[in-house]
């Protein structure tokens, strides 16, 4: 058993194609990867919203002016 389909290199390389593990699972892997990407955006927008809300609460007039002066 070999996850890449070859358990020895006693082959002619002109006859060898894909050598990555779990061949045949490309579509599920792509679905999982796309899900990761979409989840990342959803999480990021929620996190950024929280962060900006916190800034709105914390940055009162005094602190806001101090931030301007720091440039």
């Amino acid at each position: 058993m070999s996850t890449i389909g070859y358990s020895s290199w006693a082959v002619d390389l002109k006859d060898v194609g894909a050598i990555y593990p779990f061949q045949g699972w490309e579509t599920p892997m792509v679905i999982a990867a796309v899900a990761f990407w979409v989840i990342w955006h959803i999480w990021q927008i929620r996190y950024e919203s929280e962060d900006l809300r916190a800034t709105g609460v914390d940055a009162d007039l005094k602190k806001g002016n101090e931030a301007i002066d720091r440039y």
């Binding site: 058993m1 070999s2 996850t3 070859y6 358990s7 020895s8 593990p21």
Partner: peptide, 16 residues
């Protein structure tokens, strides 16, 4: 784990 069983070497007698 991910490469379990793949050849580690092009030479004979090497553990996979």
């Amino acid at each position: 784990f991910l490469l379990w069983g793949a050849p580690s070497s092009p030479y004979e007698g090497f553990q996979v």
